[in-house]
Every structure is written in structure tokens, then in C-alpha cells.
Design a protein around this nucleic acid. Structure first.
Length: 189
DNA sequence: GTATCGATTAGC
DNA sequence: CTAATCGATACA
């Protein structure tokens, strides 16, 4: 599954002079038209059209009137499958991320899907961006999981389609979002 | 048309 | 627990 393959990989953002680099530590998979939790469940629209396009592009949506969330389209054209980037570990460009986020805590700069988009400066205008050719891309290098096990559990914040354990994260990583319960039992980090 | 609810987050 | 705040969806 693409979601698991993304964990430990590195996202690079070269949209400004400052080069941002971050390791993907938590993701959620969304299955397209047959997944009731997916934005694609109700069919193609202006908002989610990118999901129905070719893989390797960014699906960026606006929600709750104030947040953006970033997905990687990963299914064949028409499948509308996507992986939501829920949390990353800052590796380079922390100064710019801190400025955008208005906070200093390293572990929380990219913790939570809304925070990811804010720290990276991504919004609806980046909807459809090609994540292979850049300027925002996912490095093709071997994923570095820092020796951590892969954990999985139910997706956060979804009602319909709960029951599918389609959230994946690096066990015990300090930058992963969610509560103790959501991270699967005691001693999560 | 109006009502309701989000793939959320920060703050009390 | 709640406000913030817009758009998509549900319903009359």
C-alpha cells in the first residue's frame, strides 16, 4: 500500500529561498468512491477533481473554514485514491516553519494535517501540483524509519468509514499526532 | 432556500 | 469543551 510506503520518506519544498525538508511520520489512506470517509465518495467535483486525476499530484483541500490539508494522489487515474499527510518531522528550514506556525516547539511544527499545510505554506493554489517534478516533491530515496516499527489504527476525525485501520505512523515518534488512545494503547511515545 | 457538519486546531 | 469560519451536503 502506498500509505505505508510513504512513511519515512522525505518531502522537500523549494518554493522560496529556504529549502524545507521533513520526514513523513504519519499518514492516512482514503479509498475513493467506495470509501464513505473519502471526499471522492460523492463523486467528482471542482473541489476534489484532482483526486480523480493521475497519481503523484497534490490534492489540497480547505476545511473548517480555516485549515488546509495535503494529500498525495496515489491511485490509477479515475481511482480517486489519496494519502493524507498527517504529520512530519522537521529536518531543515525550521526557522521558516516556526514563523509560519507562530510557535517554537520542534515536535509540533508539522504535527496534524492543518499544521502540515500551514508550515509548508501550501493551500488551494497548490491543488494539483506535481509532486514528482517539484518544486514540492517526495524524495525517491529509501525511507528512513529510524528503526521504528509501523503502527496502524483507525483514522482520526472520521465517522463514516471508521473501522478501517487506515491510519499509519512510525511507532513512538514524537512528531506523531493523536492522543494516547488514538495511538493505540499505553506508552505510545 | 435554510440547517448541519466536517479528513481541524488553539485556547480556556 | 468551545470558538473560529467557509464550503459541501442534507433536507424542506
Amino acid at each position: 500500500m502506498v500509505a505505508r510506503a510513504l512513511l519515512g520518506r522525505v518531502l522537500v519544498c523549494e518554493r522560496s529561498r529556504t529549502r524545507l525538508v521533513a520526514r513523513i511520520v504519519e499518514v492516512e489512506a482514503y479509498g475513493g468512491a467506495r470509501d464513505p470517509a473519502s471526499h471522492a465518495f460523492h463523486g467528482c467535483s471542482a473541489r476534489n477533481a484532482v483526486m480523480f486525476g493521475p497519481p503523484g499530484h497534490a490534492y489540497v483541500y480547505f476545511t473548517y473554514g480555516l485549515h488546509h490539508c495535503v494529500n498525495v494522489v496515489c491511485g490509477r487515474e479515475g481511482a480517486a485514491a489519496a494519502v493524507l499527510l498527517r504529520a512530519l518531522e522537521p529536518l531543515a528550514g525550521e526557522g521558516l516553519m516556526r514563523r509560519r506556525r507562530g510557535m517554537r516547539d520542534h515536535d509540533r511544527l508539522l504535527r496534524g494535517p492543518g499544521c502540515v499545510a500551514q508550515a509548508l505554506g501550501l493551500s488551494r493554489e497548490h491543488d494539483g501540483a506535481d509532486l514528482v517534478s517539484g518544486p514540492v516533491w517526495i524524495a525517491d530515496a529509501s525511507p528512513c524509519r529510524e528503526g521504528r516499527a509501523l503502527a496502524s489504527g483507525p483514522r482520526i476525525g472520521v465517522r463514516a468509514g471508521a473501522g478501517r485501520a487506515w491510519r499509519f505512523w512510525l511507532a513512538g515518534h514524537p512528531c506523531v499526532s493523536g492522543t494516547r488512545a488514538e495511538n493505540g494503547g499505553p506508552l505510545p511515545r
